[in-house]
Design a protein around this nucleic acid. Structure first.
Lengths: 172, 172
DNA sequence: CCTTGACTGTACCGATCGGTACATCTATGG
DNA sequence: CCATAGATGTACCGATCGGTACAGTCAAGG
């Protein structure tokens, strides 16, 4: 019962979430103690998924294909819901640093860290690798949000593929 | 009294907003009729600002310098608040298409349209121009959000400048 | 059998939300 | 002076929020 959070977490309120997972608001608070703790544990439970999603990157060719696979996973694939959740989290963090700021910063690190490590393995200096990873990850995130808002999949998929090409070309 | 909305709109609730602009919730509803209408009019009032911000783009050299000026305006400059508002709006649109979806799509067009027009002026085909503009705008938007969340200004400014270089280089 | 502890439904709490009813104040125009 | 219309304060509405109090069910263990 504990790991069904990705069903909801959209409305972020307990009653609809409880109904979605087939229990009651009362039980959620009984198990998790508070809404804040529930959110933290849901994110903690999603962390392995997110790490796996960003961790399958190894070398230059791998970075390119992994980035394309990543884009597909977050737009039409299995991780669509998770990414929506992370987008919400980042937005919440900008308006309510407490308690979301730390969780959001951690989420950013989960995304940027593995990509930066891949760039380091390609011979880039640590800081340069993090800058490149930031560009790729935040760029894809912005594009993903645009895609959710406008639904203009052709335009945005093309932009995403161009970003991936730029970010993973040997010259880049 | 009508154009002070950028003060607030963060909490998005009427009472704090009313207090911030020195009036009462009662008066906001009296003038605007509903919260939804207030939001629409606030965004409509901000549209010229947003259009001006993205509209000062004319040619290749201009695109490069304008993009850098744009980045400074949305991160440390005058339009910081407006951009925060737009970021919130896009996030809201992903969870509540009614009534935010249309407003958010319009906001995206305000951002992408002028940049795409600049690319068209540079000789790119219409669709290619919109793809390039999407990459630049959504990329900067994602980076801006990362900057708000993590506060890691050095890393993200470097990534933004790299994105601008890539997007406005003659080869790009 | 009885007790204990984990689980759960119901009903409630105070706060806040967007929105409204009603009375009032004020200023303008006849 | 008085009528009318705009502006404003106060007090309230029903809904929802996260969270809690209390009573209960039920199975395991003495």
């Amino acid at each position: 019962m504990h790991h069904l959070e990705h069903h909801g977490l959209a409305g972020l309120s307990l009653s609809p979430l409880a109904e979605a997972v087939g229990t009651s608001k009362r039980m959620l608070l009984y198990y998790f103690g508070s809404r804040e703790n529930l959110l933290a544990q849901a994110l903690a439970a999603s962390r392995p998924d997110a790490e796996a999603m960003f961790g399958t990157v190894h070398d230059a060719a791998g970075l390119h294909s992994a980035a394309r696979a990543l884009w597909e996973a977050i737009t039409v694939g299995r991780q669509r819901g998770l990414v929506r959740m992370l987008l919400q989290l980042l937005s919440l963090a900008t308006t309510q640093p407490e308690p979301y700021g730390a969780l959001a910063a951690d989420a950013v690190e989960v995304m940027v860290g593995p990509i930066a490590a891949a760039y380091v393995r390609l011979g880039h200096a640590e800081r340069d690798a993090r800058v490149r990873a930031t560009l790729l990850v935040s760029g894809l995130r912005g594009l993903c949000q645009d895609r959710l808002v406008t639904g203009d999949t052709d335009r945005i998929d093309a932009a995403a593929h161009r970003l991936i090409e730029d970010a993973t070309s040997p010259a880049g």
